[in-house]
Design a binder for these strands. Structure first.
Lengths: 333, 333
DNA sequence: CTGAAAGCGCTTACAG
DNA sequence: CTGAAAGCGCTTACAG
């Protein structure tokens, strides 16, 4: 079963390799009908399949992009990946997905590998800790876009949620329902955009409604410590009656606590989460959620990158693209 | 910012391209320390990054494998993908993941594309409807393994759950808890291994316990019709008191029905699902589940494929590898 | 210990 | 309308 190459087809069809190549690339302008048919038949007969690696080497394009996510465990990441794949699919681009696992070293390694593989561009949900490397790619003009986060002093186009608005929406909904003792829990990795902006949104909205900000109502913890955090919050003399979960993983930890301690939602504790988790609708009670437009975000990121790759012209109409969150009201508040 | 190639490094270090190539491939046996250092420095100075596409063309290996899943919406698929990626990662292989969306045409197209891209092998969660194509790859000796399903008359190695045992375990647990009126719902796409085997397991276990099999307790429906199916089941004169959900998507539909109709679990209806969904633990009540060893399955598939790719020797000690399910008892039965 | 040369399978000006 | 030739950036016998 040796590979059949373009040379075999050429020989079989009694034409030159060039002509077969023209055929493969749909340049029929100057090709006689008869030649065309002969080539077509030879291809079928020999079961020829073009070698894209060879083509890539010559054309300097692999029609493949890389996607590196900081942490694949987030619903957000998987949904964005899906959107990116769908969008690339339409443009006949392939994607290679890598999970940096919140580890900047892994991230760097993946960037190197993907570039060695000559991917035409990269979509990065950055860990944030490789600023020098990011900037290097930027100055080289290598096509890259960020998703979910921006990085200080790195002017790479970023597609991300309007995080302040997102937490603001959740908090405002609590307040509209009459809650005033409202806490927020986020999970901390590094000082990363979404978490900090969400806390800002919380504070701003509390202020705007004339409510005091109590630092002891604000918790930033590692995932493994969130349940403790909930416990501490609820053990306060004057505990919060509502909690905003900063993302899906945080929400899940809170729900685990709720189950373990037979907390009644929303009677004992109202809950709103950011990120529309799969079970929000049929969980009992249905979970009120601030959803991210994950599909739009992924789609925009992919389109932006593909544009950059395909046309050389600059399209950087902006650097930071903010997307609007959406409040989905169910029963947990 | 023109690309620096091996020729540039060679020139800069004052050696030949061959020698640089030796260096890159860690063949230091015959290289003077000094040469080595010179090359090393030149690489750093020039910021040289080898072009893997060129290497792949020459070596006829891309150190990349393709993974095509029939339907990415299943928890099973995403978990298996994760395991495959982790395993490949260790072997310095990359993966390209494609979602066939239960569409045999898409599947065929992906297989063609991946092979044109010269991936070294493919892991397929087959739709099942491309038997001719599967067999073609088999006879060509192209490295391929199946996961989750076998396909009639296609002798490709397959890693999959012991499905009969899985549903048997669930049914036996119902029976052990005193249930005798037990139904099963699966979602139907095509006549695909897991679904059919799970129904067989159901029947066998009922029989083994001296219980009659009622055909009206067995439902195979499209996802969108499952809620109706539950309704029909529970509207029977003599309705089942326990239902086994054939997979995660089915389980979710059942839970939606439960919520909409205020069914009490397990008092009104005991439930067991196959596939350990993310929320099983903190859902109220905790969901009793028959879990698949998704990580093991994915790992085994990847190892098997990589073996086949790397050593040419045949390792087909078997054709169908069955994995044991595990019952996780929580509160829904 | 190192280099010259051929070749992997394509594409692309260019010539005719 | 079609072909010969060069080249993409590597690797790999082989020669010395």
């Amino acid at each position: 079963m040796k590979k059949v190459t373009i040379a075999d087809v050429a020989q079989h069809a009694n034409v030159s390799k060039s002509t077969v190549s023209q055929y493969l690339n749909n340049r029929f302008d100057y090709m006689r009908e008869e030649t065309k048919n002969r080539i077509e038949e030879s291809i079928k007969e020999l079961g020829y399949r073009p070698n894209i690696v060879a083509r890539s080497l010559k054309q300097k394009s692999t029609t493949t992009i890389g996607v590196i996510v900081a942490n694949i465990l987030h619903t957000f990441s998987t949904q964005v990946i899906r959107a990116i794949e769908d969008t690339c699919q339409e443009a006949e681009f392939h994607t290679i997905v890598c999970n940096a696992d919140d580890d900047p070293d892994k991230e760097r390694k993946y960037i190197e590998m993907l570039r060695a593989k000559q991917v035409d561009g990269i979509i990065l949900l950055p860990t944030g800790d490789n600023a020098a490397l990011y900037n290097e790619m930027l100055t080289e003009g290598y096509p890259i876009v960020f998703v979910d986060r921006t990085v200080p002093d790195v002017a790479i186009p970023s597609m991300l949620l309007d995080n302040e608005k997102a937490s603001g929406m959740g908090i405002q909904h609590f307040i509209d329902r009459g809650y005033t003792k409202i806490g927020i829990i986020t999970n901390v990795i590094r000082n990363v955009t979404p978490r900090m902006e969400r806390i800002t949104g919380y504070k701003n909205t509390m202020n705007a409604n004339g409510l005091d900000i109590r630092e002891d109502y604000i918790k930033s913890l590692e995932v493994s410590r969130i349940r403790e955090g909930v416990h501490e919050l609820l053990s306060l003399d004057d505990p919060p009656e509502a909690i905003l979960a900063g993302n899906d993983l945080t929400l899940i930890e809170i729900l685990k606590y709720v189950k373990e301690n037979h907390v009644k939602v929303p009677e004992d504790l109202a809950i709103i989460g950011i990120d529309d988790v799969s079970f929000a609708g049929f969980y009992e009670p249905g979970l009120t959620i601030v959803a991210q437009p994950t599909f739009e975000i992924g789609k925009k990121a992919a389109e932006f990158l593909l544009n950059k790759i395909q046309k050389k012209e600059d399209q950087d109409e902006g650097l930071v693209f903010r997307f609007d969150p959406k409040l989905i009201i169910r029963e947990s508040c």
